[in-house]
Design a protein around this nucleic acid. Structure first.
Length: 202
DNA sequence: GCCCAGGGGGCTC
DNA sequence: GAGCCCCATGGG
């Protein structure tokens, strides 16, 4: 359900996914997993539901900012939203208060099924540790790097990001030295058959 | 008790 | 445009 995925993308900002699942279950239970409901329910009720995801006041406002945009411009129709050209839609969503590049790319990739690469803190850290990029590389620069080196394939971007998160959980969170022979990282160099573009690094 | 987690907004210089 | 703090809280 795309709307649920969008809510998850906003709620997961700087918080573990486990807490997001609790919050989404709370919203479901209160029948709040709906743009109109999120704009009409009392603020305290929404905040109570999403409290496990931290920053609940800000996140309530972020959810509502997106819902307002969706209703004002698309009458709540997500299919119409995701029909727009990717680059235009990306710029449009970045203009909504509370949505930065990572959240927007997550929405486009996971809810919209559109081929945009999601860069997260793990991606920056891992690629810095590999010596490929500096630690402080800008989001857009790193995103462009991946998209220049990978075909615009939604499934590939999905898997790639999942692998990076898995590597990050193992080596960044646990503060273990990054092993370039890590099977997950090796899979990150996966190159789809028939594609002449190189992937990340050799 | 302190530090870290870590997207995004907003302020300062 | 870089650097900092704030949002809120749990876990180590």
């Amino acid at each position: 359900m795309p709307f649920e995925v969008i809510v998850g993308a906003i709620l997961t900002q700087s918080v573990a996914w486990r807490n997001v699942e609790i919050a989404i279950a709370n919203l479901k239970e209160k029948d709040l997993l709906d743009p109109v409901a999120l704009l009409t329910a009392p603020d305290e009720v929404i905040e109570e539901a999403i409290r496990p995801t931290l920053y609940y006041r800000q996140k309530r406002r972020k959810l509502q900012a997106f819902c307002r945009h969706l209703l004002d411009k698309y009458q709540g129709d997500l299919t119409a939203l995701f029909r727009r050209p990717l680059s235009e839609l990306r710029a449009e969503l970045l203009g909504i208060w509370g949505l930065g590049p990572e959240t927007v790319d997550s929405i486009l990739l996971y809810a919209g099924g559109l081929p945009t690469f999601v860069v997260d803190a793990y991606t920056k850290r891992i690629w810095a540790r590999l010596g490929i990029h500096p630690e402080g590389i800008e989001y857009e620069t790193l995103r462009a790097y991946f998209m220049d080196h990978l075909p615009p394939d939604v499934q590939l971007y999905n898997e790639y990001h999942a692998l990076i998160v898995a590597v990050g959980n193992r080596y960044c969170r646990a503060k273990q030295p990054l092993c370039v022979e890590c099977p997950l990282l090796v899979r990150c160099r996966y190159q789809p058959a028939g594609n002449e573009k190189s992937t990340v690094e050799s």
